[in-house]
Amino acid sequence: MNWDPLILTFKLALVTTALLFLVSLPLAYWLTYTKSKFKPIAETLVSMPLVLPPTVLGFYFLIAFSPNNFFGNWLDQTFGIQLVFSFWGLVLASMIYSLPFMVHPLQSGLSGLPNSLKEASYVMGKSRFQTLVKVLLPNIKSSLLTGIVLAFAHTIGEFGVVLMIGGSIPGSTKVASIAIYEEVEALNYTAANTYSLVLFAITFGILLLVYLSNGGYLKRFLK
């Protein structure tokens, strides 16, 4: 039993979730409070990965990352970065793929807060950033948890995009979902079953924790 694909999967999910959080927070904040005409367009774009099949994303990433194309060539020439067949390419693809799972909970958490909360903080002389970090975020803890966990879990469950742009390189792009697929293809059902069971158990645990915590069961249990 080779644990590398599983470790890689969790590393990918962790890095993706952390970076995605940093990108999604300002985005969700802007979407909640903006009066811009472009808001509907931005919201639509954020939601697109929910609707589009992973093959569409995978196909466009493949084309975009190719050194034959402007974007891929520019990245390669300017920064020496090659996104296709690399861990960081998967991170970027996963961030886009999981974007709505992070932005939607944050946005709905923020829009659920009464305006008076923000206004009171401004009146007391707090800056926007201080208000966000010290007043708004502590009040949407369950949305934060939901967003982070969903993005994490969704990245673990990623398959189509990784299959199309990963190249199944052991230790850098061969994640658990790909390893399972390959074991099934090779008719090694025992190995496929082991990977699958581990993934099943871990994701069950993570999601159960969210529901317990969001439902307040955890607090009651700990009392």
Binding site: L62, F65, G72, G167, K174, E182
Partner: peptide, 16 residues
């Protein structure tokens, strides 16, 4: 590594 000969062709024909 491509998952099949078709995907190998895909990798080569797109130039990645």
């Amino acid at each position: 590594y491509a998952e099949s000969i078709s995907q190998t062709n895909q990798f080569i024909s797109t130039g990645v």
